[in-house]
Simulated assay, not measured.
Amino acid sequence: MSERIVPSGPFRLRASAEFGFGQRHAARFDGVMRMAFALDGTFEPVAVAVRQAEDDGPVEVEVLGSADVDRVVAQTARVLSLDHDAASYPEVGQRDPVVGKLMELRPGLRPPLFHSPYEAAAWAVLSARQPALQMATVRDRLAAEHGRVFRIAGQELPAFPSPEALLAVDRVPGLPELKVQRLHAVARAASDGLLDVDRLRALRPEEAHAQVLTLPGIGPFYAALVVLRAVGFADVPVTEEPRALELMGRLYGLGRPATADDVGRLSEPWRPWRTWTAVLVRAAGPLLGTPEER
């Protein structure tokens, strides 16, 4: 079964498919973006093959599995930030010349999100104080052994296990017992609805952040990751991401990483897309020189 999503504003699927972070590996785009994930609410394993025939054009979502197609497509839209009317997003680049140059370097980039707050919180537990590549391998093995493996457009991809399945895992090779206990805490929170995406979206971002902070092993940085890169708030200033602060300091000639006060001042022209623009800074900033070099 296939459905179509029509983007409002610029969108290039290639930019999302080649953007690697968290549970998603950066990969060479072959025309298909493959995703397997636990469905919001029911945690049923599902998979999609996403295609786009032309830049900024309609996106075709092929749904695999027996779940409700509309719900799978809605979640896919959120993951790709296609659930926003982004017609005004390019205006940020007109107001801020630095952002305009970044948009030229990464045209059509929207923030690709974690599949769900549940998966983002699990990744936060896995990756805290650990090498990301090593933990990505652990995550993939955990999904392959305790989730469901789909064959998507000629490639196999596992969906992360449901909270019930995760709670049944007693040990994970490569993880200390404390991290397994914390994964269980995430699974219980997801089962209880604490990590429900609609519930978190109904809160103010700072309220959602405070609630995610109650999970054991998740500090301010990872709570911000869950809230901003899984719930999908588009207009929150990013003050907890060291690399983004470093890049802002360089791009705007501060001579040091940006502070929270700097972010508040510099990101004012970015409204109502401050989160999106911060992700663009993180993705394209390394390709742009300092003010003196420009």
Score class of each variant (00 low, 15 high):
L215K: 08
I218N: 09
L167S: 06
D196M: 03
A210P: 10
A168D: 09
A210C: 10
E156T: 14
A168L: 03
K179N: 06
A187H: 05
G219R: 06
L194E: 12
L167I: 01
V149D: 05
A185S: 02
L178S: 03
G147T: 14
V149W: 07
R199A: 05
P216V: 00
E164Q: 12
A190L: 09
R182W: 02
S191N: 08
Q155S: 11
A165W: 04
V212S: 13
D192H: 12
A168E: 08
Q155W: 07
R182L: 02
E177G: 04
P205C: 14
R151A: 14
V197L: 07
S162V: 03
F150R: 11
E206H: 15
V149K: 09
R182T: 00
R148A: 12
P161Y: 12
A165T: 04
D196Q: 02
D198C: 01
P163F: 06
P173Y: 07
R188M: 03
A185C: 00
P158Q: 12
A187V: 07
A159R: 03
L166H: 01
D198N: 08
E156H: 09
A208D: 15
R201L: 15
L194I: 11
G193V: 03
V180M: 03
D192G: 13
K179V: 00
P173S: 05
G147S: 09
A185Y: 00
V149R: 10
R171G: 07
I218E: 09
Q211Y: 08
F160D: 11
G219N: 07
G217D: 00
Q181H: 00
V149C: 09
I218Y: 10
P176K: 02
L200I: 08
Q181Y: 00
D196A: 11
D170H: 02
L215I: 06
L166V: 03
L175S: 05
A168W: 02
A165Q: 11
R204Q: 15
E164P: 01
L183G: 03
L157S: 13
F160E: 06
R204F: 15
P158D: 13
A208E: 15
P176S: 01
L203T: 11
S191D: 02
L200C: 10
A208Y: 13
A153T: 06
V212Q: 13
P176W: 01
I152K: 12
D192S: 14
D198Q: 13
E207K: 14
A168K: 10
K179P: 02
P158V: 12
A159Q: 06
E156Q: 14
D198V: 04
L157N: 12
V172G: 01
